[in-house]
């Protein structure tokens, strides 16, 4: 079953003070920096947090990509730059900043 896209009202109910949205933006910037620097351990920690939380707050696409990457980190499989770019693109889309990492 396809995960439905939550409405703006749904997101407001789940994140009334916007703190999760602010975190998404902070995570987006951190992921961009870490992927450049190659600090995979820190990157894995942020991705793990997003894998657990993003879907809960209604950011389905971000959550699904983060889960995919988190599974690879846990399994010790390589995470490619293109995968991180997909996550960044989903974050930008969620934050209304399309096209930055495209």
């Amino acid at each position: 079953m396809r995960t439905p896209r939550p409405t703006g009202q749904d997101l407001k109910l789940l994140d009334p003070d916007g703190s999760f949205r602010a975190r998404l933006d902070a995570d987006r910037q951190a992921i961009a920096q870490l992927s450049d620097s190659g600090r995979l351990e820190d990157l894995a920690r942020i991705v793990h947090g997003l894998a657990g939380a993003a879907g809960t707050f209604g950011y389905a696409e971000v959550g699904n990509i983060a889960i995919e990457l988190d599974d690879r980190f846990v399994a010790g499989e390589p995470v490619r730059a293109a995968d991180v770019a997909r996550l960044l693109a989903a974050l930008e889309q969620a934050l209304g900043l399309p096209g930055k990492s495209a």
Binding site: D10, G58, I67
Partner: peptide
């Protein structure tokens, strides 16, 4: 792809 919330769930 995980289905963790239906429309009515949100």
């Amino acid at each position: 792809t995980l289905d963790y919330g239906h429309a009515e769930g949100f």
